[in-house]
């Protein structure tokens, strides 16, 4: 099994709902709290597992804005895990989720150096590395109603741009979407083989124009007068 997210850049409006939902759920959860520094001061900052950035593609007026959410990609070749000296970072064999055992981490940042996607953030106050858990404490929690056993970010997304599932199984919605919509990975050349995929914007549907001749006003009014329309 290879659990991960598929994110639809065709509908993501960059609203940050997923990022805040993530923050909210994981403030308790398995690696919480996610410390916030200087929350009411000059440089408010904190630990987040999911951040949304906005890019502009092309030059005005042929520009397109792209909203780009990023969280842990739960890579197949998770170098963050390879380099971790303590074994705190690990990739679960059964579902491919990459986690950090908070009791083992020594806060050396080495895994963050190894992560191309900025998915790992050190919690200065706990001294441990934190990251997206793929909401492992939601997706397997049998006490939650079935339809809620999904990551918080997926449940909350107002444009349903986030999909969760097993990318190993060709019959899942996520695999189908990646197949049919040409899903791609970020920086494939690095060879991390991220599990998370992005769906590119859909091509625009061409709409025909209604062609009708244009005639002069006088003629028209004359022609139109006395046309019978049942009221």
């Amino acid at each position: 099994m290879r659990l991960g997210l598929v994110i639809d850049l065709d509908t993501c409006v960059g609203c940050h709902a997923c990022a805040v939902a993530c923050k909210q759920w994981n403030s308790s959860g398995t690696t919480g709290p996610l410390t916030d520094y200087d929350p009411y001061g000059a440089e408010p900052s904190g630990v987040w597992f999911n951040r949304i950035r906005n890019f502009e593609v092309g030059d005005y007026p042929n520009n397109k804005t792209v909203n780009f959410p990023m969280s842990c990609m739960h890579c197949e070749t998770a170098e963050c895990v390879t380099v971790c000296p303590t074994g705190a970072s690990y990739k679960r064999e059964e579902d491919g989720i990459v986690l950090v055992d908070q009791d083992k981490c020594m806060g050396c940042n080495y895994c963050a150096w190894a992560c191309p996607y900025g998915a790992r953030e050190l919690d200065e106050s706990s001294g441990t590395m934190k990251k997206c858990t793929l909401c492992v404490d939601r997706i397997y929690d049998e006490e939650l109603p079935k339809e809620e056993r999904k990551p918080a970010c997926v449940l909350t997304c107002p444009t349903h741009a986030r999909f969760f599932g097993d990318l190993d199984d060709p019959d899942t919605e996520v695999s189908r979407l990646v197949r049919e919509r040409g899903g791609f990975q970020s920086m494939p050349e690095l060879g991390y083989n991220p599990t998370n995929h992005y769906l590119p914007p859909r091509p625009t549907r061409p709409v025909e124009q209604e062609r009708r001749p244009q005639i002069s006003l006088q003629e028209k009014i004359k022609e139109w007068m006395g046309r019978v329309v049942e009221k």
């Binding site: 020594m106 050396c108 940042n109 706990s126 001294g127």
Partner: peptide, 12 residues
């Protein structure tokens, strides 16, 4: 190290 008390684990 932000959490030196676990430094010994670095050998594992």
């Amino acid at each position: 190290l932000a959490n030196p008390k676990n430094a010994w684990r670095a050998f594992s």
